[in-house]
Simulated assay, not measured.
Amino acid sequence: MDEQHAARRRRREEAGGPACRDADPGLFFPPDGGTMTSGQVSRAKALCQACPVQQACLTIAVSFGDSNGIWGGTTPGERRRLWDQAARLRSVASIVTDLAAGRTVTVAALDRPAVVYHLTTAGWATERIAGALGISPATVDAAYQRGRSAARFAAALSRGSPGKAPGRSAA
């Protein structure tokens, strides 16, 4: 990369432009609708990781229901899982209420990130959550990270005008 190109890229990044602007689109979208290699996915995600518009890019993909390629540092499967977890954040209120009241509740593994996220934001310590759900503190931490990602995703959706879940039919 020559000096002028590097200077333009720095100015664009400082101005908030996408990090992928000068990248080969084939890095983010498989040619001819094919499958991306794990190396392609890793390289695309690495570029997205440092992008100042990563969240906006993800919101655009979800708003328009785009289920192909890497958008906002996520694969189509990851976007579907985020969409599902964002929906779960809204659906676990009664479970969280029961746990807060001291009731014994069985939490399905798919609901765990949403429940852990809500309990953590309500001030519960990792050890308390682990004891209430019968899981390890490491599992609590991993579930919290997934729940937090889903909460950020849900917040981005509420700022945009989402269409349908990626890869899903409109209801």
Rank of each mutant, 00 (worst) to 15 (best):
P137C: 08
R146E: 14
D32L: 09
R146G: 00
S38C: 00
E78K: 02
D111T: 03
A86E: 09
S149W: 01
A170Y: 12
V92P: 09
G26Y: 06
S158R: 15
E13V: 10
T97L: 13
D111S: 08
L58R: 11
R90T: 11
V107T: 08
A93T: 14
H5P: 00
L58H: 06
A156W: 02
E127R: 10
S42F: 12
Q49C: 00
D111E: 13
T104N: 12
G167Q: 10
G131D: 15
M36L: 15
R168P: 00
P52A: 08
G77S: 10
S63G: 15
F64K: 11
S169Q: 10
P137H: 11
A156F: 01
R148D: 13
A109P: 01
R90N: 14
Q40R: 14
S42R: 15
D84K: 14
R112E: 12
A171H: 11
P113I: 06
W71A: 02
W83G: 05
I70R: 01
R103N: 11
T104P: 01
L133M: 13
T106P: 00
A109C: 01
E14R: 14
V41Q: 08
I70L: 10
G69Q: 02
R168T: 10
G134K: 06
L99E: 10
A125H: 13
A15H: 11
A122W: 08
T104L: 12
K45A: 09
P76G: 03
T139C: 00
A138S: 13
A101V: 03
G16N: 05
S42K: 13
I70A: 03
G72W: 10
A132T: 10
G102S: 07
A86V: 01
S42Q: 14
Y117A: 04
V41F: 01
W124T: 06
R80N: 01
A154C: 03
A165F: 03
C20Y: 06
Q49N: 10
A156S: 14
A46L: 11
P25V: 11
F29D: 01
A61L: 08
T37R: 06
T59N: 02
G163N: 07
A142H: 07
